[in-house]
Design a protein around this nucleic acid. Structure first.
Lengths: 113, 113
DNA sequence: ATGATCCCGTTCATCGAGTGAACGCCAGAG
DNA sequence: CTCTGGCGTTCACTCGATGAACGGGATCAT
């Protein structure tokens, strides 16, 4: 089970373009091929993605990673959940910055270096 | 060389209370004892912290991790640098939340579940 | 004095997430 | 046919992080 972050990002990319290869995804996501393989397998396992090859059943080059109906539905849920976690992160970050500003002891909006 | 984050946090805690043990620091920072030991050694190595035992030179229980003058000075610089990185993070997070909101397709300020 | 206990800093075997080179496979080009 | 290239898959390897275990000093009860 990949994190919400990677589930979200993989599902988003695949919904935009099902023809991305695992290597494409790795480059796009900034992670390794091995990890993409792991995430993708998990998403297929739970039925959110289906690997379809439209040309020939033995041609891996023709793979398309299509979101299943469940995948489309779940993608929204995951996105909301991910958004919420980001909002919480946002609040925490705001507090931390507030604290740091007080420690620095000046009003810093943008700092050059 | 610990990250700015840990340098900042360790220096902050020690400036507040030099009598914290490595175990105290570990608990406070939410990291392992081993990592604290590593960070602290590095800070001592570069001269930002000095381990002083005020009772007896052989009593480890009496250790105090005091910020050197350089440590006090550097603490401010590190804090500013850390703040800046947090501000950048803040902007990035803001953008990401914006994107996520658009994808969710509604105006979400706080979401219950 | 002696032993038991406690907390200290230090060490290092162990772990696990992440990596990417290498493999077998297949299609298309020469 | 061979050769090349991109595909998914695998797995030995890396490396930061972990915390149990250790030796040592202080304290206290015996």
């Amino acid at each position: 089970m990949p994190s919400d972050e990677y589930s979200y990002r993989v599902l988003k990319l695949l919904s935009q373009n099902p023809h991305l290869s695992q290597r494409d995804l790795a480059k796009e996501l900034g992670i390794s091929l091995g990890k993409v393989n792991y995430c993708l397998k998990a998403l297929i396992e739970v039925g959110l993605v289906k690997a379809k090859n439209f040309k020939n059943s033995r041609n891996k080059q023709a793979y398309a990673y299509l979101l299943t109906p469940q995948g489309i539905e779940e993608k929204t849920k995951i996105t909301v959940r991910f958004l919420n976690s980001k909002l919480a992160e946002f609040q925490a970050l705001k507090s931390e910055i507030e604290t740091l500003r007080k420690e620095v002891g000046s009003h810093v909006d943008t700092v050059s270096e």
